[in-house]
Computed example of a mutant assay.
Amino acid sequence: MEVRCTSIEEVREQIDGIDREIVALLARRGGFVTQAAAFKKTTTDVRAPARVEQVIAKVRGIAEETGASPDVVESVYRAMIAAFIDEELKTHSSLQANV
């Protein structure tokens, strides 16, 4: 449902609310990324370039279905995935050190 704002302050309030939801979802996604590190044997498994491309194709499709810009969604996801891979590599490294 789209809210029609009558001022820039209302627009910013709506964006702030969405940002809170996005950050909460990033935290949730991050928890699963951390769990995934335990199942991967190598850093190549962590980087999983084929899986990255699979996710990108999926979210571009979702963007088209929902009216979002596929290019913006792809850019955001590529940045997000890269950041999560960096975190997962750290987790994976510490798990491997404890094996």
Score class of each variant (00 low, 15 high):
G67H: 14
Q96A: 04
F32K: 13
V3G: 07
I62L: 15
L26G: 09
Q35T: 08
A63I: 08
R60A: 09
A37P: 04
T34H: 07
K58A: 09
F39L: 05
A79N: 13
Q96T: 03
D71T: 15
A37K: 01
A36N: 11
R28A: 03
E2H: 13
G31H: 05
A38I: 01
I56H: 08
Q54R: 08
T44S: 02
F39C: 06
P70L: 05
V52G: 09
A48F: 05
V33T: 15
A79F: 13
A97G: 05
R28H: 08
P70V: 06
E74F: 09
E53A: 07
D71Y: 10
E74M: 06
N98K: 07
E64K: 14
L89V: 03
E13Y: 01
I15V: 15
L25R: 12
M1L: 01
E21Q: 15
R4L: 00
N98A: 09
Q54A: 14
A79P: 04
I81F: 15
A82W: 13
I85L: 06
T91N: 00
M1I: 07
P49H: 06
P49C: 02
V73D: 02
I56F: 09
A27R: 12
G67C: 10
V76C: 10
S94C: 02
I85M: 11
I18A: 08
A24D: 10
A38E: 15
T44N: 04
I81V: 15
R29K: 14
V33C: 14
A79Y: 13
E2C: 04
V73S: 12
E13N: 11
R47N: 10
E9A: 03
T6S: 03
I8G: 10
E9Q: 00
R4D: 05
M80N: 14
I8D: 07
F84T: 12
Y77N: 10
C5A: 08
K40T: 02
T66M: 04
Q96P: 02
Q14A: 06
S93K: 01
V55N: 11
E9K: 01
Q14K: 08
I15L: 03
K58S: 15
D86G: 12
V46Q: 02
I18K: 08
A97Q: 04
M80D: 15
I85S: 07
S69M: 06
